[in-house]
């Protein structure tokens, strides 16, 4: 489902402030696998996510998502890939605080060809699953941390993605919320979704349903 073939990622290549973010990364995630990416912050986890999401292009090597190389396609096609196949849960949730819950979670589908009623239907279903229905018209800035996290999850699910990327999803959450998050992730895996989790939270390593653990440090896989 996800494959990185000897990928290098160099920022500002050829310039005095050249910075190698990733070196010779080989990684493969099969369909419906849950892969845990472990490493300290700054180790290159986020860069791998950016590559998989097509937000940056590799300086060398190839990135293949769902059987298709995205290393050299135009930005617009990378964006279409994100829109169709990917759901991302960001570390800081990255919600738009002025907008309502509904507007936040439907944001990915606004430029799509889906009709408003179709979007409405799937949004309501997801919000019911995540018990957020009563907050549908509330502006995100009035929500608690846990609610915000669930909105972020809802937004990642709105396009019925094949792949979920979650970057440090449990940072800044208390015990109860982490438990409920694990529950949600488990459900998603049960639905056949491929999941890539980046975290240095030791709790994830203990889960028996994690299929693959990859340790990363200084931009290289250990």
């Amino acid at each position: 489902m996800i494959r990185l073939d000897s990928v290098d990622l160099i920022f500002n290549s050829g310039l005095p402030n050249e910075m190698t973010a990733l070196k010779n990364i080989n990684l493969s995630v099969e369909k419906n696998e849950l892969t845990l990416l472990r490493g300290a912050s700054g180790s290159g986890k986020s860069s791998i996510f950016s590559l998989i999401a097509g937000l940056v292009k590799p300086s060398r090597g190839d990135v293949i998502i769902d059987g298709k190389s995205i290393a050299k396609i135009p930005d617009s096609f990378a964006a279409l890939m994100r829109r169709d196949k990917l759901g991302v849960i960001f570390q800081k949730f990255n919600l738009i605080h002025d907008l309502s819950v509904y507007d936040n979670i439907t944001l990915p589908l606004i430029p799509s060809a889906k009709t408003t009623s179709e979007i409405r239907l799937s949004a309501e279903k997801i919000l019911t699953d995540l018990t957020l229905t009563n907050k549908i018209n509330t502006a995100v800035r009035y929500l608690s941390g846990g609610e915000q996290q669930r909105v972020a999850i809802a937004r990642a699910l709105i396009n019925q993605p094949k792949i979920i990327l979650a970057d440090e999803p449990t940072a800044n959450l208390d015990q109860a919320l982490i438990e409920s998050f694990l529950h949600i992730i488990h459900d998603l895996k049960a639905k056949g979704i491929t999941i890539l989790l980046a975290s240095h939270d030791p709790r994830f390593s203990e889960l028996e349903w994690v299929d693959q653990v990859i340790d990363i440090a200084h931009g290289e896989i250990q």
Binding site: S13, G14, K57, S59, R60, K72
Partner: peptide, 9 residues
């Protein structure tokens, strides 16, 4: 298109 340099991007 075969370049992966900052210039190409």
């Amino acid at each position: 298109l075969n370049q992966t340099t900052a210039l190409q991007y």
